[in-house]
Computed example of a mutant assay.
Amino acid sequence: MRALVVRGVAATPRVEDVDLAGPGPGEVRVAIRAAGVCHSDLSMVDGTVSPTYPLVLGHEAAGVVTEVGPAVSRVVPGAHVVLNWAPPCRRCWFCGHGEPWLCERTGSPAAARGRASTGEPLHVTLGLGALAEQVVVSEHAVIPVPAELPFDAAALLGCAVLTGVGAVRRTASVTAGDSVAVIGLGGVGLSAVAAARAAGAEPVLAVDVSPAKADLAMAAGATDFLLADDALSRSVRSRTGGRGVDHALECVGRSATIRAAWRATRRGGQVVVVGMGAKDDIVGLSALEIFHSARTLRSSVYGSSDPDRDLPELARAVLDGRLDLTPLITHRTGLDDAAAAFTRMARGEGARTVVTP
């Protein structure tokens, strides 16, 4: 098969021929029909995180099960599925205490799977490597969805939508009348904007460094679009009675934007870090500031969601028309041109690129 492979930090991803073994016990083979290019994939390329190379990129995808290994009971060939990059074990302490998104046995960030045409072993992003024509994964890493759900929408449910919507609903517990700011308007941020609006939040302030994101933000349901500049906190407070927002969701993963979210939040409000950042990018807050502001700073891992429970509900919402994912998809491409999506993402252009292998 063919897959998008990166061979080192800052290297250009390229399509390569890959040898992929068939499914073993408890595993399934999935033909990928659509895959989204996520910022976490870019983090694997630009060195924000440190995976093992060479690496097959991609972890947000949907497709059709084509083959099952022995002892598989979850799906059958022909099933339409969404990939889950963090399948919980259901046995560890965190799973037993209702936090499956923190499962201690979730696969490594870049497990080994398959070989390059040269014979060298390949690793796969977040246990999947979904920017490829096929994947072989554990049966617990696939979630069945209705066959009538379009593959492009299904793919986005597996990461961007589950993460952004979950951050609003599950982590922040946004309710009607709450004020919300979302900083960073990629696929995750736009999903959070849509979820905040659907929850009845008012206002919903969408924030980005690029003025070109304004139309996308308003289409997703924002009440206001604000530029991320030095005047951001004043702009936010001018729209919230001088206080700041009840909830600020940071969907970038940088110390500067986390600080911006902190300053835009009212006393007693909460800052939710949704973006994945670098381990050496330190956020500085003084002890007095933390005490005086009474704000809560927390993260949202995979939207604090249980994919087996939450993803089918999101699929129904798409089919019922309650969840419109149209504003999230700004580019479509084949596998051969997928590398250009990383360049666009690094420049802050558009939202999600959907790749159809």
Rank of each mutant, 00 (worst) to 15 (best):
residue 181 A to R: 04
residue 65 V to A: 10
residue 93 W to A: 15
residue 177 G to D: 07
residue 239 R to F: 10
residue 8 G to T: 02
residue 24 G to F: 06
residue 120 E to R: 12
residue 126 L to A: 06
residue 90 R to Q: 06
residue 33 R to S: 04
residue 109 P to G: 09
residue 121 P to S: 11
residue 74 R to L: 04
residue 311 L to D: 14
residue 256 A to M: 04
residue 212 A to R: 15
residue 266 R to G: 02
residue 292 H to I: 12
residue 9 V to G: 02
residue 218 M to L: 15
residue 131 L to R: 02
residue 281 D to C: 08
residue 267 R to H: 11
residue 135 V to W: 00
residue 188 V to N: 08
residue 136 V to P: 01
residue 191 S to L: 07
residue 317 A to M: 07
residue 87 P to D: 13
residue 167 A to G: 13
residue 279 K to D: 13
residue 310 D to A: 13
residue 24 G to W: 15
residue 113 R to P: 00
residue 63 G to I: 09
residue 335 L to W: 01
residue 238 S to G: 14
residue 242 G to W: 14
residue 298 R to T: 11
residue 75 V to T: 06
residue 264 A to W: 00
residue 223 T to S: 14
residue 125 T to D: 14
residue 30 V to R: 02
residue 269 G to E: 03
residue 122 L to T: 09
residue 278 A to R: 11
residue 339 A to T: 14
residue 350 G to P: 02
residue 300 S to W: 06
residue 13 P to M: 09
residue 104 E to F: 05
residue 51 P to K: 05
residue 145 V to K: 03
residue 69 G to D: 02
residue 57 L to I: 05
residue 149 L to K: 15
residue 304 S to W: 10
residue 239 R to E: 07
residue 316 R to V: 11
residue 301 V to C: 04
residue 242 G to M: 08
residue 34 A to V: 07
residue 138 S to H: 05
residue 148 E to W: 02
residue 84 N to A: 10
residue 22 G to C: 08
residue 55 L to S: 13
residue 22 G to D: 10
residue 27 E to R: 11
residue 93 W to I: 15
residue 226 L to K: 00
residue 61 A to C: 14
residue 48 T to R: 12
residue 197 R to A: 13
residue 161 V to T: 10
residue 89 C to K: 02
residue 50 S to R: 14
residue 70 P to F: 02
residue 228 A to Q: 11
residue 72 V to Q: 12
residue 7 R to K: 06
residue 297 L to F: 13
residue 307 P to I: 07
residue 23 P to V: 04
residue 188 V to E: 02
residue 69 G to A: 06
residue 155 A to M: 05
residue 23 P to T: 08
residue 90 R to G: 14
residue 282 I to S: 00
residue 154 A to G: 03
residue 11 A to L: 14
residue 306 D to S: 03
residue 146 P to S: 10
residue 312 P to T: 12
residue 301 V to S: 05
residue 165 V to W: 07
residue 356 T to H: 08
residue 251 C to V: 11
